[in-house]
């Protein structure tokens, strides 16, 4: 009798299809969200700052990083972001795995040609093919990577140290249209319901499949699942709208804003706003 073991082969390596990888990705996204909530509850430096101030301050620092023409200033901003992460009890190992490595690989791949293509002073040659690496090319690549790493670190610090609902309220109190904030809030709320639905559909499918489906069948299953999820999303959307109407919704969302700003928060804001102001003022 031949035993079929779905999803794995005899060499011990787990082979996963598109659907399994999709579900694992969804579950992974949920675990990231759980981790973010746990970090946001820690008694760190940024966790105690008024979310509105934090949002403006970190956006100002990101603007500073993108505006500067000095690698030294960029390095200082990156070091500052790392210091903020440490003071806010955000794990450096997680930052390096979740942000720095990914950004380095992504932006690094994009800027690799620049180190050869930007004309300038040659500083080295690639063995065998003899292409020249220019100082200006390396400098351009360093700017792109440095800016991306700094901006991504600061953005992640915002979402890791601030509960998502507070980010939404901060956006609202800073003048972002309420409808846009409400849509963002509901997306965050229902993405977990849909992740759960997708996971359950996958598990139900897996529990009834006797042998690994071929590629055509897997594609058909993926399309069916996407269609089902879309139908569920539409039905859920309609039900939620009905529930909103039942509680008095008439097209305008009102939010309860209960933030408190301390003197230290204002200090952080002025410090952060000074960075892009000084950089732009100096023109470097």
């Amino acid at each position: 009798m031949v035993e079929a073991s779905y999803g794995s082969c005899t060499c011990g390596k787990v082979r996963r299809g598109v659907l399994d990888r999709l579900v694992l990705g969804l579950v992974d996204a949920e675990s990231h969200a759980l981790h973010a909530e746990e970090v946001a509850a820690r008694p760190g430096l940024l966790q105690g700052v008024d979310p509105r101030i934090k949002l403006v301050a970190l956006v100002a620092l990101i603007l500073g990083a993108t505006a500067t023409q000095s690698l030294l200033v960029l390095a200082m901003l990156f070091a500052g972001a790392v210091a903020l992460a440490v003071a806010s009890m955000v794990g450096i190992r997680r930052l390096s795995r979740q942000v720095w490595l990914g950004v380095l690989l992504f932006s690094g791949t994009i800027v690799v040609p620049a180190i050869f293509l930007v004309p300038g002073t040659p500083i080295a040659h690639v063995p065998v093919i003899g292409w020249a690496i220019t100082l200006q090319g390396v400098r351009s690549a360093a700017f792109v990577i440095g800016r991306s790493e700094t901006a991504a670190t600061l953005a992640l610090l915002l979402v890791l140290t601030t509960p998502w609902p507070h980010v939404l309220k901060a956006l609202s109190s800073l003048g972002v249209p309420t409808a846009a904030v409400a849509i963002l809030g509901m997306t965050y709320r229902y993405v977990f319901v849909l992740i759960q639905a997708a996971t359950q559909m996958m598990e139900a499918r897996r529990s009834r499949v006797m042998a690994p489906p071929d590629a055509r069948e897997r594609r058909r299953m993926l399309m069916t699942m996407i269609g089902m999820l879309l139908a569920k999303t539409l039905a859920l959307g309609s039900e939620v709208h009905t529930a909103m109407i039942a509680r008095g919704y008439r097209g305008e969302v009102r939010l309860l804003d209960d933030f408190r700003t301390r003197p230290a928060d204002w200090l952080l804001l002025f410090g952060a706003l000074a960075v892009p102001a000084v950089i732009m003022g100096l023109g470097t």
């Binding site: 998502w164 939404l168 709320r189 319901v193 859920l236 039900e239 529930a243 909103m244 309860l256």
Partner: peptide, 14 residues
């Protein structure tokens, strides 16, 4: 899950 559409319990009550 239909009734509770706000980001937090506090927002839901409000």
């Amino acid at each position: 899950d239909v009734q509770l559409f706000n980001p937090t319990v506090m927002d839901e009550l409000a």
